[in-house]
Design a protein around this nucleic acid. Structure first.
Lengths: 174, 174
DNA sequence: AAGTCATATTTCATCAGTGAAATAAAAGAT
DNA sequence: ATCTTTTATTTCACTGATGAAATATGACTT
């Protein structure tokens, strides 16, 4: 796999040349956009790489973590779909996989028997507590050389970007 | 689809609770990591959305743009694999799709006849010049409210992160 | 000339996610 | 009591990417 830095360098030159041909292009913004996409997918790759030994993919991991982080360790398929940004079809498949491994259980809700209650099991909690800590060093290394101010800036700017993306997709009711 | 802002809010609370159970967790870094992943994939969705009317997916668009941005409008499959972060198998498929639409051509290289020279066609250039400008307003809106300093900061921080990710994957030679 | 390496393609099996449609069951509305 | 809506599951066809193995071709080495 090519180093990210090389791809970025080549992207910089490419956008430079394109913006000479098409001067109306918002070059700085386009660069930021490409940067986000490149770094984002590299980060995604890094995550999947760390998950592979545990036979989990990103969306299974995310679903499990959402449950783990809940005060009561439970949620419903619909809610999980929302927060894990997955379709219902996919969430059914994810839940099946996690149930099969004994990390979660499915049961009917008491109050509303249409709903399905998904709970993380004690085995699921142990699993998370065992797999999470070995990831910490690499997560910390990603932000090596970032001052506290850098981290705060990055957080602020990403949240601002997220807010703008929300506005954009609300302005487009497809 | 859930709003990004909601997902972020819920992620913040979730990480807060997890870091109470597992205090060694680098919470700030984990938050940044999740933020990058969420915003990145939302951005990816936004891009795919803009590409759909042109019947292009992300990697086809990227491949085409790399060629467009080259001074001579040409490259080779191997090089495109690198910069578009695609496997050879996939690049063959991408090239087939673009050739079929008349946007690029494939031909043997003169110097080294093992190599295949991929060139953007005049039709390919016209296609890019027609499809690109309508994207500009939305790209600009993504960064609405970003000062010049914000943009520079974000650029700098993403590049630093990219650099760290390169180091990480070089320290892991599988 | 023979052997080795490099480049690209093709085939194949597989995985992860999408979207639409059909089904089921229960809640809520009138 | 019937009708509508909500929630979840299941099935199906499809897209896009992945990785391994086999093949073809041409370049480089000696």
């Amino acid at each position: 796999m090519a180093r990210l830095t090389n791809c970025i360098e080549m992207m910089d030159e490419g956008i430079g040349r394109v913006s000479q041909i098409i001067p109306q292009m918002p070059a700085a913004e386009a660069r930021l956009c490409r940067l986000m996409l490149m770094v984002g997918s590299s980060l995604e790759g890094e995550l999947e790489f760390k998950l592979k030994p545990h036979k989990l993919n990103h969306s299974e991991f995310l679903t499990l973590m959402i449950l783990y982080s809940r005060p009561d360790g439970s949620s419903t398929p619909g809610e999980l779909c929302e927060y894990a940004s997955q379709g219902a079809t996919n969430m059914t498949r994810i839940a099946n996989a996690l149930v099969k491994r004994g990390l979660i259980t499915r049961g009917a809700s008491e109050e509303d028997r249409r709903r399905v209650l998904i709970r993380i099991t004690p085995a699921g909690r142990r699993f998370v507590q065992k797999m999470l800590p070995p990831m910490f060093p690499r997560v910390a290394l990603m932000f090596a050389g970032f001052s506290d101010g850098d981290k705060r800036s990055l957080s602020r700017l990403l949240r601002k970007l997220a807010h703008n993306l929300d506005e954009l997709s609300e302005a487009t009711p497809p």
